[in-house]
Amino acid sequence: MAIFSQLLIAGIATGAIYALIAVGFALLWQTSETINFAQGEFVMVPGFIILSMMSYFEIGVIPAFLITLPIMLFVFGYLFKKILVEPLIPYGDFPLVIATIGLAIMLKEGAKIIWGANALPFPEVVSDQIIKFSGVRASVADLTTLGIAIVIIIGLQLFLTRTFVGRSMEATAQNPDVARILGIDVDRMVLYTFLFNAGLVTVGALLITPSYLAKFSNGETLGLLAFMAAIVGGFNQVRGALIGGFLIGIIENLGAFYISSGYRTAFPIVLLILVILFKPEGLFGRKEERSI
């Protein structure tokens, strides 16, 4: 039971990180129909940049993160939208998919050349130790991760539901055409979602890289997991992607321990396929009316 609860907390903690990445993914999809196949690489790259900042300026992980954040906002937020996404939108979503796959390959190979093919250790935000309270064991790192992720998630939800800009973003995400009619500056809101996504992946990098280590190929797994979290939960709802992230994290951790660690990623995939077959709008998503 003690092991189970520790696994559960670890699962929720990694799930929280997947949720952050998945929410960004879902936001991009909703506002601009961008299926970002480079989302995993978007997490991998800031991990390396934080490491480089740490060694270059000889600073700790948090200051390095704070330097990296604006860089990522500019590159993976603003430039990504302006240079790659915007010119391709008129051609439908297919060329855009191809372009993000190209981007993913470019980032991955580029990271391999710049930072090498070996996994580099990445410092925890707090030191890792196991604490016990009333028989439940949990790692401090997991709890910290969970805490940070939950603060961000709650903040994001409050922002989206309570502020004018947030509600405009939500409206844009739900239905850009209606939003435009309501007088919302849709382009600006789309840009905001790209910036949000860039911020979310950078935070995700800070939290996930300690356990994944910084490696050029991290993007494959991370991208796939974020992807699955978004679909399982429901592509068209921020809430869906959040819950999907937690679910994937938990299933992955429990399945790896109790059934087979070799099939770690297989459990979320099976869940994904079942969800797509029987509830394509996602467990918590809205059903979209098919128009003829």
């Binding site: 391709l88 191809i98 190209g102 981007l103 390959i105 470019m106 190979e109 391999k112 050349i113």
Partner: peptide
């Protein structure tokens, strides 16, 4: 080793 990068950039330009 830069080939894949070139290829990826080429793909993005071509699709663009």
């Amino acid at each position: 080793e830069y080939y894949l990068i070139f290829f990826a950039i080429f793909v993005m330009l071509l699709i663009r």
